Amino acid sequence: MGKQEKRKRSGDDSDGEDGPSTSGKEATVGMRTSHIKNKLVRSEMYAKLRSKDKKKKKAERTKRQKEDEKAMKSGLEPPPRKQQKTIENMRVKDETMVTADDEEVAADEEQDEFSEHFARVRPPKVLLTTCYKPSKIMYTFLSEMLEVLPHAEYYKRGGFPLKKIVQFASNRDFTDLVVFNEDSKEINGMLLVHLPDGPTARFRLSSLVLGKDIKGHGRATEHKPELVLNNFGTRIGRRVGRMFASLFAQDPAFRGRRVVTFHNQRDFIFFRHHRYIFEEKEKRITGAAAVKKPGEKTPAPSKQNVVQARLQELGPQFTLKLESIQKGTFDSTGGEFEWLKTRKMEAKRKFFL
């Protein structure tokens, strides 16, 4: 059976160029061949169009490279490149993005639950605890978190419900309560309660790597760490960032060179704990930077000692995903939510932090 007969039987006499409408979007090869019913014809057409697209992209790339070279030789700026599509620039941004000079937000934050912390009136004092029956890996993780948070203390959970623990921590002037949860010996959740009046944030915890499992890791000193918060740009994001900041002192000891980072990307919060390392290394200098001696036509290569900085990871490292923010302290039944993640939110392809 020839190709013409196969196409007739498949109900398609076209060459696959005119597939189903894509509502103004650039049709992919799969879209342009999905209407062909015959599997063999569809596979042949897919391969043909795929090869054609590759040749077209190669020709465009070669043309662009030649234009760039021509512009560089002429001393001109190369033509602007087409912006690459990424998840970040394709998703819808939240309308509550905060600018640096937003007076309304600044006024609200001067009177919120964290204002005393940022005014250095109430230094941090953090209570760490766990689920009812923690495993060995939880205790290892807690020992590393106690190094991350110099102002933290660990209390065994025992059989006490969370409401009792919140009351216990408030009565002893703790500023924050952090509860880590695990399931089947896998740490998978974190509850953060700011005391005494809230709010309460619940996070899903994943991708945990303990410091002892990181190649070339170091040990933390007792110095207060510097805190870095990246990309918390919305109203909810700033609130979450202020909750994290309330766990750390406002007067970091820079001499210790410790840095704790919460980096938000696509609403995933990456936690890292590093230390700056400054090393003096010998660097070979050539070309115009080298020193030209008398009688030399071209400067000879020389060596010079330079100080280079690098980061040494201390650990642990993990990823957080915000599940909810509740007004007040923990209340599993009658609590009012400021923000609650739903499946519909994920479907909208929108950032919230």
Rank of each mutant, 00 (worst) to 15 (best):
W339S: 06
T342W: 05
Q83F: 10
K283Q: 15
K8T: 10
R7W: 06
F351Y: 06
T96Y: 10
F254H: 14
A152V: 07
Q65D: 14
H273T: 01
A100F: 06
K63R: 14
R9H: 05
E67F: 02
K54H: 14
E110T: 03
T200E: 10
V179H: 08
Y46E: 05
L353I: 10
R238V: 01
F118A: 02
A27V: 05
K321V: 10
M138P: 15
P299C: 13
M72Y: 04
G218S: 05
D331K: 05
E88W: 13
P196Q: 08
V178I: 12
E95P: 10
R7S: 05
V166G: 04
L353F: 09
E346R: 12
F180N: 02
F118L: 08
R61P: 02
K48Y: 12
E336S: 08
F352T: 09
R258D: 00
A249Q: 11
R235E: 13
E153P: 07
F254T: 09
E116I: 02
F268R: 11
E110F: 04
M45I: 10
M1W: 03
V291W: 11
E336R: 12
S170I: 09
V240L: 10
Q250P: 06
A220N: 01
A59C: 07
S115I: 01
K8A: 11
H274F: 13
G16Y: 02
S34G: 00
H217D: 02
I269D: 01
L191M: 13
S324G: 02
D102P: 11
V92L: 13
P316I: 00
E69W: 01
T175W: 03
E144T: 03
L340I: 09
V179W: 01
P78Q: 05
K54D: 14
G287T: 08
I236P: 07
H274N: 10
L76G: 03
M345Q: 12
F203A: 02
V179L: 11
K341N: 09
K63I: 05
R120T: 12
R343F: 08
T129D: 11
E147Y: 00
G287N: 12
G233T: 13
E104G: 02
A289G: 07
P20G: 15
K215M: 08
G315T: 00
V209Y: 00
K39C: 01
G241M: 04
Y132R: 11
V41H: 01
L205M: 15
K212D: 11
R235M: 12
V228Q: 12
E338Q: 12
T129F: 07
A290N: 09
F244V: 04
R284G: 01
P123T: 04
T28K: 10
E182T: 04
K56D: 14
E313T: 13
G233P: 01
S115F: 05
M72I: 11
L128R: 06
G328V: 08
F168D: 14
I269P: 02
F160G: 05
K48L: 10
T140V: 05
P80W: 07
D251V: 10
F248M: 02
P161S: 01
R9D: 07
